[in-house]
Amino acid sequence: MSQLEMPAVAAGPAYRRQNQRRQMSDRTITHLFIWPTLILLILMNIFPLFYSLYLSFNDYSVIANEPPKWVALDNYEKILTNERSRYWHNFTVTGKYAVLSVGLQIVVGFGLAMLLKEKFAGSGLITTLILIPMMLSPVVVGLFWKLIFDPSKGIFNHLIYMNATGGKEWLSDPTLALWAIVIVDVWMWSPFVVLLCLSGLSAIPSYLYEAAAIDRASGWFQFRRITLPQVMPLLLIAVLFRTIEAFKQFDLVMGLTGGTPGDATETVSVRLYREAFLGKFKTGESSALAYIVLIIIIAVSNLYIRALNRTREG
């Protein structure tokens, strides 16, 4: 209210000058509001990116006292062609893990969402309960599942698996260890797909189904021709989002297996950590590896953002 009265009381040049000083233009406000964010992001993300690009062309180790030595593309060549350093193995593991866990998450998540589609008494509570695993700390989850998978002390073998086919050494068998990570990841992240699918399903206009029901379309037909195409964009987003996350996967693997047995579950991120921060601290080479991962992720995130924009518009 006082705002309205002010000009009447204190008109004149003195007031006007004061008012001009106090009232910033929209332009100033825009700058003032945006730049702190941008500066912080540039400082913490862009500068490091360029720095590591530079390092990736050098032979350098943080623990050695020598300055970086320019080697051009040697690091990249070593990663992409050298058989003995087994970088391809890490990419294969990551790829296998990504395909398996994203695929299963989509199936489980979409299935659950279809079941939860129609509300019933307590369905809200159940939905929230299902979502709990997603909010947990991945490293803690990984660590605790280590106990669950333990062949003699864990509940996984004893409750779920044992009498059926005999217990298994989940974390020390190379094939099963990857499956163990997939199982935990599916347990943890299917809720995310459920959440996305539920929001997609609830957005489908009900008149589509009513029209189909009047035309006596079968349930399968309704699912194929109405439900699936309508949920597709969100399913796509779920796939892309989870794929990006799968390439970033670090915490869960570190907590659960740390890359063991041998290097059977060593994802790219874990390898990167090992090269950069353990043993020889191969800073240059790991920067190059980081850049390769980065290019893959940028490609995938571009797809993600495009799909996102399409759903927001559509």
């Binding site: 913490m44 993300n45 500068f47 490091p48 990116l49 720095y51 590591s52 390092l55 943080v62 990006i244 390439f247 970033k248 670090f250 991120s269 990167l272 950590y273 950069a276 921060f277 800073t283 790991s286 920067s287 980081a290 850049y291 991962v293 980065l294 992720i297 940028i298 995130s301 993600y304």
Partner: peptide
């Protein structure tokens, strides 16, 4: 979208 592991090396040095 950047994996933490990718940015940590330069941030570590910085």
């Amino acid at each position: 979208m950047l994996p933490p592991v990718v940015v940590t090396i330069p941030i570590f040095l910085m």
